[in-house]
């Protein structure tokens, strides 16, 4: 079984740390892009199995990043994390999962496990 890889794009460092820790607990390799300006490099380096994507980022809009990832890796599972429920709705059909903040570690682990099962 290959090592699973999760890319986390989240500007809040605490949430970033939580997501990373939780996914590492679930056995994932993780990378964190805190500003939305480094994800290209990460994507170039490795296809993620899971992307945790915050919509509000200092340098980019999450929706645009979603399009970029989706265009590049059609089978990557993308979970959008947001407090903006209405904006999240507009992404229905593009994102695989929409997690409304506060995102519980339990739900994140369930998602991680479900991908592990498919892989």
């Amino acid at each position: 079984m290959t090592q699973l890889y999760a890319l986390i794009i989240e500007d809040d460092p605490k949430l970033g740390l939580i997501f990373q820790t939780a996914l590492q607990q679930a056995g994932y390799d993780t990378d964190l892009d805190e500003n939305g300006n480094r994800y290209h490099a990460f994507l170039d380096a490795r296809q993620p199995d899971l992307v945790i994507l915050d919509l509000h980022l200092p340098y980019a809009f999450g929706g645009d990043i979603l399009d970029v990832i989706r265009a590049r890796y059609s089978d990557t599972v993308i979970a959008v994390v947001t407090a903006d429920f209405i904006k999240a709705k507009t992404l229905t059909g593009k994102a695989d999962h929409i997690l409304v903040k506060p995102v519980s570690v339990a739900s994140l682990l369930r998602l991680a496990e479900s991908i592990k099962g498919q892989a």
């Binding site: 605490k14 939780a22 506060p102 570690v105």
Partner: peptide, 18 residues
């Protein structure tokens, strides 16, 4: 929501013995 995410997330991680 964002700070709540922090509170809940860290507490859960603690609970999972992370």
């Amino acid at each position: 929501r964002t700070p709540l995410g922090g509170v809940l997330g860290f507490a859960e991680l603690l609970q999972y013995n992370a």
